[in-house]
């Protein structure tokens, strides 16, 4: 199949000449979108042109590295699916496919379609953990956790940290990401001990990094490749209120 790629090119963070460039490509409908980009890059290299930088690693939807806005939608046309799991058969013959990087101030562009998401790690280091030393744990079955509770915690723990939620939000809010971790740990008995300190510090860090607040657009939930629900944000707000009134 023949498609036209329209790809954001940017040579470093402050590139004044950044902009879209068009590339025609003869692809196979069974290729993944990233394989089509591999093919395009191979052609560009053969022609002595500069290939397109994009982020990817596991290519099976779990590492969270891939991060393309495809035709205006983070991770592209298929719901609950990462960029790397999109195949060319999702597009029409002759279609123009627009590829852009995540766009959000806290995620500066490094090159072309690659952005810097280290703000997420800094938020996680502000409390996205349970303080337990190796060697200090009680027997794993010492604290029974009801299956529904465990499953609910899991739904939030499934976050892959890709940042699509931020890219989709008009406010560049990271509340779904932060809420997912806060909810995962607040639901489980192991995480409850530090819940007050955790939520305050993570939210403070989120604000310092320049992420916006939530105004209930719901775009984050719609693009989340792991279907993390807006409940994460509700739980985050509840934890914040709780932290304001309850002392641990």
């Amino acid at each position: 199949m023949r498609v036209q790629f329209r790809i954001w090119r940017q040579n470093g963070p402050g590139d004044a000449n950044a902009g879209f460039k068009e590339y025609p490509l003869q692809a196979d409908e069974h290729m993944s979108l990233l394989e089509a980009l591999d093919l395009l890059n191979a052609e560009l290299i053969r022609k002595g042109e500069t290939p397109v930088a994009f982020e990817h690693d596991c290519r099976e939807g779990i590492c969270g590295a891939c991060s393309l806005v495809v035709n205006g939608v983070p991770h592209g046309p298929r719901s609950a699916t990462t960029t790397c799991q999109i195949h060319m058969r999702e597009f029409r013959e002759g279609e123009t496919i627009v590829l852009e990087p995540w766009r959000a101030r806290p995620f500066p562009v490094i090159k072309d379609l690659v952005v810097d998401r280290s703000a997420f790690d800094r938020i996680m280091s502000a409390g996205g953990y349970v303080s337990v030393r190796a060697g200090a744990a009680p027997d794993a079955n010492a604290i029974p956790i009801g299956q529904p509770t465990a499953e609910r915690a899991f739904d939030f723990a499934a976050c892959i940290g890709c940042g699509a939620c931020v890219a989709a939000c008009p406010n560049a809010s990271a509340m779904l990401f932060v809420g997912a971790k806060v909810a995962h740990l607040a639901i489980l008995p192991q995480g409850k001990v530090e819940r007050t300190r955790r939520v305050g510090r993570m939210v403070e860090r989120m604000d310092t990094e320049g992420f916006g607040g939530c105004s209930n657009h719901g775009e984050c939930e719609a693009v989340c490749p792991k279907s993390i629900s807006l409940d994460a944000i509700a739980l985050l707000n509840r934890e914040l209120v709780r932290a304001a009134v309850v002392e641990d």
């Binding site: 953990y129 349970v130 337990v132 190796a134 060697g135 200090a136 744990a137 009680p138 027997d139 794993a140 604290i143 029974p144 956790i145 009801g146 299956q147 465990a150 499953e151 915690a153 899991f154 723990a157 995962h184 740990l185 489980l188 192991q190 995480g191």
Partner: peptide
């Protein structure tokens, strides 16, 4: 033991 204490959500019985 350690992973459960960290909050790893292993599968559980009812």
């Amino acid at each position: 033991d350690h992973c459960v204490a960290q909050g790893v959500p292993f599968a559980r019985e009812y």
